[in-house]
Design a protein around this nucleic acid. Structure first.
Length: 342
DNA sequence: TCTGGGGTCCTAGGACCC
DNA sequence: TCTGGGGTCCTAGGACCC
């Protein structure tokens, strides 16, 4: 009997894999992609391949740390366009299967399928992706997005794993809460202080305690995560963004107010051009300043009217900038536009 | 040791209104 | 002298994800 399943497809070491496809001589060597490819500069690892991970290199690690842990690694710059092209090829392959495909990032997607052989379907997907893109993927099988997403982690690399109500408790019960999709390390530490050290503990936790610690919506939602019963429907419609932003970390800290203003103005104009090309209008402009060593604040202003005019965005950003006390060195500046939802 | 860039969603406090 | 309670909006910050 055909049943409904949610699958989660996740390309193995996606960015590194795309790079190695066009530089076959790198296969088998440790490869780290991040920043502009110079590991002496400010920047972090986007993806490391499995050879580099053996040395303890992982995503979001500072490039300098990665270089120290694995000095022999090949460091490559991020090339968005190449990954977007590879991603499109993967998604087109997934859409060739019957069912709903929801893109969830460059290298992952959810699918809602109806089948009497979920594992067989997952294997067919893996075969098609490999044939058409030369990329390898893991597939998680669940009854909702949460189960499918968590399942994929057990299938990596290249495998298939099923996680449903039948085995959720057995597989997840003893794991720490940050094994769940939506709970990170900060929440896990806070939970540990409350005596919640496993998914099972979280499931058994007192609702009032969770509400007090994490808020009226988030607290109960965490318990649903622990039960493996959360996640929205799989939808094919592309997501309509609510904001657009640009930001930049400078290789040397900025100290001159004039230079800081010029950079914020430049980013605001760049953002305006992006909004024009997407036919979107900003209703609010928010400026972000990260002071050295690493302290971040934001201030925003409403635009006089919804707009994507270069002058309006620049004036808004500069107005927001006046709310900061620029008395310390600045390592990052950013401008975000909150968009009119039509 | 040093910590990117692009996003989303939730929370909490204060303003404001009835 | 003392001033309730609820709703909504705005704003900044924090957590999380890829």
């Amino acid at each position: 009997m055909a049943e409904r399943f949610v699958l989660h497809v996740d390309i193995d070491e996606f960015i590194a894999a795309v790079e190695i496809l066009r530089r076959p001589e790198l296969r088998g060597k440790p490869v780290v992609v991040g920043g502009d490819g110079d590991p002496t500069k400010r920047g972090v690892v986007s993806t490391a391949n499995y050879e580099a991970r053996k040395y303890g290199v992982h995503s979001a690690m500072p490039l300098r740390t990665a270089a120290r842990r694995c000095p022999d690694a090949v460091f490559l710059p991020v090339d968005r366009e190449a990954y977007e092209a590879a991603s499109s090829a993967v998604m087109a392959t997934l859409r060739s299967f019957p069912g709903i495909v929801e893109v969830a990032g460059w290298d992952e997607a959810f699918m809602e399928v109806t089948t009497d052989d979920a594992e067989g379907t997952a294997r067919s997907i893996q075969r098609a992706v490999r044939e058409r893109t030369s990329l390898s993927c893991a597939v998680g099988i669940g009854r909702n997005k949460l189960q499918a997403k968590v399942a994929t982690g057990f299938g990596k690399p290249g495998g298939v794993f099923r996680l449903t109500d039948e085995n959720w408790h057995e597989v997840m019960g003893g794991l720490p809460p940050d094994s769940l999709w939506g709970i990170g390390s900060k929440r896990a530490s806070q939970m540990a202080e409350l005596g919640i050290r496993t998914v099972e503990d979280l499931l058994a936790a007192d609702d009032a305690l969770l509400v007090e610690a994490f808020g009226p919506n988030t607290g109960p939602w965490y318990r649903r995560l622990a039960a493996g019963r959360a996640g929205s429907r799989v939808v094919a419609e592309p997501y309509v963004g609510k904001s657009r932003s640009t930001e930049r970390t400078y290789q040397r800290n900025l100290t001159e107010p004039q230079e800081i203003r010029a950079e914020v103005a430049r980013q605001a104009r760049e953002l305006a051009a992006q909004l024009v090309s997407e036919h979107r209008l900003a209703v609010r402009i928010v400026v972000k300043v990260r002071f050295a060593p690493f302290f971040t604040t934001t201030h925003g202003v409403a635009t006089e009217e919804p707009s994507n005019d270069e002058g309006v965005l620049e004036r808004g950003a500069l107005a927001a900038l006046t709310r900061f006390e620029l008395n310390r060195p600045v390592r990052l500046l950013g401008v975000r536009a909150e968009l009119l939802l039509s």
